[in-house]
Design a protein around this nucleic acid. Sequence first.
DNA 1: CTTGACTCTGTATCATGGTACGGGGTGTAG
DNA 2: CTACACCCCGTACCATGATACAGAGTCAAG
Lengths: 138, 138
Amino acid sequence: MSSLTIGHAAKKAGVGTETIRFYERKGLIARPSRPRNGGFRSYSDAHVDRLRFIRSAQQLGFSLREIGELLSLEADANADCKEVHAKASRKLEEVELKIRRLRAVRAALKTVVSTCPKKGRAAGRCTILQALNPKTSR
Amino acid sequence: MSSLTIGHAAKKAGVGTETIRFYERKGLIARPSRPRNGGFRSYSDAHVDRLRFIRSAQQLGFSLREIGELLSLEADANADCKEVHAKASRKLEEVELKIRRLRAVRAALKTVVSTCPKKGRAAGRCTILQALNPKTSR
DNA sequence: CTTGACTCTGTATCATGGTACGGGGTGTAG
DNA sequence: CTACACCCCGTACCATGATACAGAGTCAAG
């Protein structure tokens, strides 16, 4: 449970210090308690996890608004459990769609890689799109 | 091999007409031949596939620059086959990393969904981050 | 051969997600 | 007690990825 200044937390999470304050303004990360009023922000490793998740999710094509929604999904003993269930299920479907699409891209890339060997000439002509959309009657 | 105006191609691909011209300026989609000089752009279904791929890839977290790189990967009988192989392999690793991360998010969402049943109270407290980062000594 | 829906080019504007900077405060090593 | 590295807040600026608009041209139907 280390206590980090904003600069150290930023370095550990791989973001800029200004970025942390930006996320705070956007409501993605709570403003940490500060010892004396007016003192410095103090971060824990849980905050660093949160920052890393935000970065990771962005690279998976989620906007900050969507990431906020993901982070606010909270199963606890409250009355909105039905709503949390519904939201999480919807997100789950989106994630599964992304996975399916990425698998298709992966397969297409593998086709390109194997069509185009490390040494020698390509076995034929092949682009990602040709691998993804097998031509039927076009 | 239908021939579409920019408006019809846009509708079919689910983008705006201005967006197609924007991608053209960015070099993501070639300017289609136009019958008489000064006439209208004419698109084929292959163009529509290309537009759909661009949209899909964006939702997977690729920037337009990266998408351009993916689209320009072309295995044919040219001298740069080694380079194409290397680039495609690198992209493949990125795609696999994204898939691994999405699987982790999927698992975390499943944990949230099952912790928070459709009816009744949650079996405990659980957020995405708790599901992703099992607390060890924090 | 005109009307109306569409397209053309070019430039301006917008939303998102940061990044930079100015003018000050803090805290700790020497 | 002062020098230096860091933090505070607020605001301005930036890149990316569109989206809007003005003024002119195109084209198919009636």
